[in-house]
């Protein structure tokens, strides 16, 4: 399958600080990709580079086979719902649909009107008077009715209450099922990502830590518990993400592409949340060493 997003050595620097560094990614088409990481890790930077709002300082990025925002044709392929889902507060809901219709070559007016009706939004309502959830839904409507190949959403539900969040995600998943969209969304709620995504990218301190199919990642990460032992004595194929010790016991979170046969270990499964947290809490020198992230792509469970 072709890559919907491909980055090679991608980097973005603001004055002295790198917001994103040496990022290599190949995200297959047809997936719902979750981009997770702590605040300030560079999630928004990556998404803004993918949507063409930013231009890279280093490396290249290709989205749907072209340079982001390179022209009208490229713009039509990618939808972007920015953080805080900005809308024109002085324009009405109907005006926003009108805007989408006039500015987008593939605009699906029926989908847009139908969504607004089902959401129970008054078309004459000024967008500035909408609640956060309604505003997000309006922005999502614009993104979906544009009929892009890839829809990028930057923390779309961060500001929403749990009910609005669920409704937003339901509508997004319905659109994915209906229109065969690829989606990249950032979130700091791993539970949302686990539910809605099938591919995850973990970004920490401006470096991609791991990227891959969620089921594969779950299949090749394990928790090992056993008698106290030096993690350096593990076989070559087992990479330790985190290690903790008591005076008698050692607990390791490891990534390995082969089964663990050592009988001294009790092998336990790891959920996505455990895996993500393990990558986030790794020591700083491991975070900046991006080589392991690429190896994981090959790990097939």
């Amino acid at each position: 399958m072709s890559a919907v997003l491909r980055a090679r050595g991608l980097g973005k620097r603001y004055k002295q600080r790198w917001a994103l560094q040496s990022c290599d990614l190949d995200v297959p088409a047809g997936r719902v990709v979750g981009l997770v990481g702590p605040n300030g890790a560079g999630k928004s930077t990556l998404l803004n580079l993918a949507s063409g709002m930013l231009t890279p300082t280093a490396g290249t990025i290709e989205v749907c086979g072209g340079r982001p925002a390179a022209g009208v044709e490229q713009l039509a392929k990618v939808g972007f719902v920015a953080q805080d889902t900005p809308v024109y507060s002085a324009l009405s809901v109907a005006d926003h649909l009108d805007l989408g219709k006039r500015l987008n070559p593939n605009w699906d007016d029926a989908v847009a009107r139908d969504r607004i009706r089902r959401l129970g939004l008054d078309p004459k309502q000024r967008a500035g008077k909408l609640s956060g959830g309604q505003r997000a839904q309006l922005a999502l409507t614009l993104g979906i009715a544009k009929r892009p190949e890839l829809l990028i959403l930057d923390e779309p539900v961060a500001a929403l209450d749990p009910l609005a969040r669920r409704e937003f995600m339901q509508d997004l998943m319905e659109a994915v099922a209906e229109h065969e969209l690829s989606v990249v969304l950032s979130s700091h709620l791993v539970s949302d990502v686990e539910r809605t995504c099938d591919y995850v990218i973990v970004l920490v301190d401006s470096h991609v830590q791991v990227a891959g199919d969620i089921d594969d990642l779950v299949a090749c990460h394990h928790r090992l518990t056993g008698p106290r032992r030096d993690p350096d004595t593990l076989p070559a194929g087992q990479h330790v993400l985190t290690a903790s010790h008591t005076d008698r016991q050692t607990t390791l979170l490891v990534r390995t592409d082969t089964a663990v046969h050592d009988p001294t270990w009790t092998v336990g499964p790891l959920g996505l949340e455990d895996i993500v947290l393990a990558y986030m809490t790794r020591p700083a020198d491991a975070v900046r060493d991006t080589r392991p992230a690429l190896e994981v792509l090959r790990c097939s469970g």
Partner: peptide, 18 residues
């Protein structure tokens, strides 16, 4: 249908397909 499950549970349609 996959679409109904995806919508009702806010879950990835690929997950349902799988």
């Amino acid at each position: 249908t996959v679409k109904d499950v995806a919508k009702q549970m806010a879950v990835n349609p690929n997950t349902v397909l799988k």
